[in-house]
C-alpha cells in the first residue's frame, strides 16, 4: 500500500514550469562543477603519485590542484538554487527521504566542510608536508568526495519510491534500493571524464611544454570512463524501478544520449590521433557533445521523475485540499 501524506497547505510560489526550469537548469550547472571537482581530485591524486618519480607530473598536479578549490566554491553555490527548487516542488518527497536517511543526510555538512578545509591544506601546504601526509590529505578528501554523492543519490532515489517509505530502516537499507549503485557507478565514472574534458580546455591554449602530453591525458581520462559508461549507463537504465506513468519518452532520450556519447568518443579518439601541434582543435565539438549529453540526461531524469510521481502528486494534492477544507470547516463551525 502506497502512503499518501498531505502536503503543506500553501500554494507554490511560482508556476511549476518555472520551478522545474530552475531545478533542472541549475542542477546541470551544479553537477558540471561537482564532477570537475571530484574528477579533478582523482586526477591530482594520480598526477601527484606519478610526480614522486617525475617532477613534471608534480608540477601538473600542482596546477590542477588550483582548479579544485575554485570548482568546489562554484559547485557549492550553484547547488543552492536546485536545492531551493526541489524543496518547493517535491516538498513531501524530498523531506521524507531526508528524514528516513537523516543520520547521513546531516553528515553532509561536516564531511564536505572538512573535505574543503583539507583541500585548502593540500593546496597551500604543497611541498611543505611530508609526502605521506600530503598524499594522506588527498586520500581522505577523495574518500569523502566519493561518499557524499552516495548520500545524495540514496535520497533522490528514495524520494521517487513512496511505496518503499514504510519499509526502509536507515540509510544503508535505503542504499539497497534498486538503481542506487548502478547510478552511483554512472556518476562516479562521469567525474574523471568531465575532469579530462576540463584539462583539455585548460591546456589547449597554453604555451606550456607539457601541453600536448596533458591534453592527451585529458582525452584518455575522458575516453576510458565514457567507454565504460556504455556498459554502466544501460545497467542504470534497466535497473530503474517501474513507474505508474509512462517512461517511453525518458527512455528514448536516454537511448538518444548513447548515440551522442558514441559520437563524442569518436571525436575524442580522433583527437588522440592528431599530431601534438594540432591536438585540442576538436575540443569545441567534444565539449558540445558533452553539453548535449548533459542536457539530455537532465531532461530524461526529469521525465522519469514525473512518470514516477505524477499520479502520486495528484493524490497528495487531493488529500491536501480535503484536509484544508476540513480544517476550514472546523474553524468556521467549531
Amino acid at each position: 500500500m502506497t502512503p499518501v501524506p498531505h502536503d503543506l497547505p500553501l500554494g507554490l510560489p511560482a508556476p511549476v514550469g518555472v520551478l522545474t526550469a530552475v531545478l533542472v537548469g541549475f542542477f546541470l550547472m551544479h553537477i558540471l562543477f561537482v564532477t570537475m571537482m571530484v574528477g579533478g581530485m582523482m586526477m591530482v591524486l594520480v598526477a601527484q603519485i606519478r610526480g614522486l618519480k617525475d617532477k613534471a607530473w608534480d608540477h601538473i598536479a600542482h596546477d590542477l590542484a588550483a582548479t579544485i578549490t575554485v570548482n568546489k566554491s562554484i559547485a557549492v553555490v550553484l547547488g543552492v538554487g536546485p536545492l531551493l527548487a526541489i524543496n518547493t516542488l517535491y516538498t513531501v518527497y524530498f523531506y521524507t527521504a531526508n528524514a528516513l536517511t537523516g543520520s547521513f543526510w546531516i553528515l553532509i555538512v561536516p564531511l564536505v566542510a572538512g573535505a574543503f578545509l583539507l583541500t585548502y591544506a593540500h593546496k597551500y601546504l604543497w611541498g611543505r608536508l611530508p609526502v605521506w601526509l600530503h598524499l594522506g590529505l588527498i586520500l581522505v578528501v577523495m574518500a569523502i568526495f566519493a561518499f557524499v554523492p552516495l548520500i545524495f543519490l540514496v535520497n533522490v532515489t528514495l524520494m521517487l519510491t513512496p511505496d518503499r517509505w514504510g519499509e526502509v530502516q536507515g540509510f544503508w537499507d535505503a542504499a539497497m534500493l534498486p538503481n542506487v549503485w548502478t547510478r552511483y557507478a554512472h556518476f562516479m565514472l562521469s567525474c574523471p571524464a568531465m575532469a579530462g574534458l576540463m584539462v583539455v580546455w585548460l591546456y589547449r591554449r597554453k604555451a606550456d611544454q607539457d601541453r600536448a602530453q596533458v591534453i592527451r591525458m585529458g582525452y584518455r581520462w575522458l575516453l576510458g570512463p565514457t567507454l565504460a559508461q556504455f556498459v554502466v549507463g544501460p545497467l542504470a537504465l534497466i535497473t530503474l524501478p517501474p513507474t505508474p506513468g509512462s517512461q517511453g519518452l525518458a527512455v528514448a532520450i536516454f537511448l538518444g544520449s548513447i548515440l551522442v556519447a558514441a559520437f563524442l568518443c569518436l571525436v575524442a579518439w580522433g583527437e588522440l590521433k592528431r599530431p601534438d601541434a594540432l591536438i585540442g582543435q576538436g575540443f569545441p565539438l567534444v565539449a558540445g557533445a558533452m553539453v548535449v549529453i548533459l542536457v539530455l540526461m537532465g531532461g530524461a531524469r526529469h521525465l522519469y521523475r514525473e512518470a514516477a510521481l505524477s499520479d502520486h502528486r495528484a493524490a497528495v494534492a487531493a488529500k491536501t485540499e480535503a484536509f484544508r477544507a476540513e480544517s476550514e470547516a472546523a474553524r468556521t463551525n467549531p
Binding site: 566554491s73 531526508n98 528524514a99 537523516g102 561536516p110
Partner: peptide, 21 residues
C-alpha cells in the same frame, strides 16, 4: 568558503530534518 558556506546550506539541511513543516 568552507565552513561558512556549508553551515549556510546546513541550516536548510538540519531544519528540513527537525521541522520540515
Amino acid at each position: 568558503t568552507t565552513v561558512g558556506a556549508l553551515t549556510g546550506v546546513g541550516i536548510w539541511l538540519s531544519t528540513s530534518l527537525v521541522n520540515p513543516a
